[in-house]
Design a protein around this nucleic acid. Structure first.
Length: 104
DNA sequence: AAGGTGACTAACA
DNA sequence: ATGTTAGCCACCT
């Protein structure tokens, strides 16, 4: 089992209507500086494992997706469908919607 | 098979 | 205070 499984497990624990950061997921998965891996893993395994990739954003609350296959607008729509307000700049208020895994 | 890249973060200068 | 460097592991070429 690699880091991937840990990340998947953590991501699946994110409550609906909340968002978290790559750093948080990496930390909960046991790698404080594995943020990059989180992004990479989500990029490859998001649909294979049915992960809510839209709930993961960078530490600034900004949607970092630069892949055309995972467009920001799609992520924004998904977040909006969960009741999360996303700014026109694709930014989410972490102080309001941020989740830091206190319930794990 | 080996090397490079990646949706990031934190620590150091 | 800001700018730069280092680090993480899995997937792709």
């Amino acid at each position: 089992m690699g880091f991937k499984e840990h990340v998947i497990r953590v991501v699946k624990q994110i409550p609906q209507g909340k968002v978290t950061t790559y750093g948080t997921v990496a930390t909960l998965a046991g790698m404080p500086r594995g943020g990059r891996l989180v992004g990479g893993i989500l990029h490859f395994c998001t649909e294979s494992n049915d992960l809510p990739w839209q709930r993961i954003i960078n530490r600034e609350g900004f949607i970092s997706t630069k892949c055309l296959e995972h467009p920001k607008q799609a992520q924004k729509a998904l977040l909006a469908s969960e009741g999360i307000e996303v700014s026109d700049d694709f930014t989410v208020d972490l102080n309001k919607y941020g989740w830091f895994g206190e319930k794990i």
